[in-house]
Amino acid sequence: MTRNTDAIETRGLTKRFGTEIAVDELDLTVEHGTVYGFLGPNGAGKTTTMRMLTSLTQPTDGEAWIDENPVSDRDAIRASIGYLPEEPPVFDELTGREQLEYFGRLRDLPAAELETRIVDWLNRFDLTDDADKRIDDYSKGMRQKIGLIQALLHEPDIVFLDEPTSGLDPRAARTVLDVIADLTDHGHTVFLSTHILSVVEELADVVGVLYEGDLVTEGSPAALTARMEAEEGTTLEDVFLSVTAERGPAAPESVVENAGDASDRQDGRVEDR
């Protein structure tokens, strides 16, 4: 079958942990050079979806492709993607600079080019003065910055960001939003999960709302808010509250994530560190 050239595509993508359905027959398409805002309450299945799309969690059913390559072929998609999970994968005993050097070597970046990129990113995120301190001494915001730089260091075509502004002060959060805008200006694709709806309204080309593993609505921020014009609310927050109002509470995030960790260990899959 001839495939299109969308950045991300899923068909019937499903993940079960025992009797718990974390993601239920998810169909979505994300075009190149766009920001896809992925919304949903805790336990909705957002992180599980991102882990399947980055090959860190094996789907129970369905298929997914990254730039035409199946996510089951991790070697084929590895160079194309960058991933910042909500808890950045860093080694506390390393300095920030050592962490980035280590990751860059894993990505086979030439030494001189790697050093230039590290210096540029450290400057952009105001980390130059702290680059040679141990990550164990970093604040949550500083760890988040290192994790984001790590995800972007090899200049991937498609970037998955799970709560990228978590723990950041307003100035640093503004830098992150500017970086995301720059990425799409240069043709990169960003799959963005966040609870901050103003971020999605500012950056997203398309918004998808996931609830209890189902994609309950999808469209541009303007199109979704236009649906609410006849009602009292007209913001993206109103849309989010409306489409999830009649659903019961989703499974606790910790239940799904703990099950996912166990499943990944059984699958023999580990996250790049």
Rank of each mutant, 00 (worst) to 15 (best):
P164T: 05
G213Q: 11
E212Q: 12
G208R: 08
I158P: 09
L210N: 11
D169H: 11
D178C: 06
H195L: 09
T175H: 03
T189I: 08
L183K: 03
I196N: 05
H186W: 04
D205T: 14
H195T: 14
R171C: 02
E163R: 02
L203V: 10
R174C: 03
I158M: 04
G167D: 14
L210V: 15
V176Q: 03
H186R: 13
F191D: 05
L161T: 09
I180P: 10
E202C: 00
T194H: 00
V206P: 13
D162L: 05
A181Y: 00
H186V: 03
D178R: 05
T194E: 01
I196T: 08
E201S: 09
G213H: 10
E163G: 02
A181Q: 04
G213R: 09
L197P: 15
A181M: 02
A173D: 04
L210G: 09
I158A: 13
V209I: 15
I158V: 14
H195S: 12
L161G: 06
S193F: 00
L210E: 11
H186D: 12
T165L: 09
L168V: 14
G208T: 11
S198D: 08
L161N: 09
V209M: 14
S193W: 00
A204S: 10
H195I: 12
T175D: 09
L183T: 02
D169V: 08
A181I: 01
V207W: 08
L197Q: 10
D162R: 07
A204H: 00
R171D: 07
V206Q: 15
R174D: 08
D182T: 04
H186P: 02
D178Q: 10
D185T: 04
V190D: 00
E202R: 11
E163M: 02
V159M: 05
L192G: 04
V200S: 14
L177S: 07
D162F: 02
L192C: 06
G187H: 06
D178T: 12
L210H: 11
V200P: 15
F160Q: 12
S166N: 14
H188G: 04
T175L: 07
V209E: 09
R174H: 08
T194P: 01
I180Y: 04
R171M: 07
P170C: 07
G213N: 12
H195N: 15
L197H: 10
S198N: 08
E212V: 12
V200E: 12
R174G: 13
D162P: 01
T175I: 13
D205G: 14
V206N: 13
H188N: 08
S193R: 02
E201W: 00
L168I: 15
E201D: 15
L197D: 10
F160S: 13
H195K: 07
S193C: 09
S198W: 06
L177W: 07
T184P: 04
G187V: 04
L161C: 08
D185V: 01
E202G: 00
E202N: 06
G187C: 08
P170N: 07
T189C: 03
H186I: 04
R171Y: 03
L210C: 12
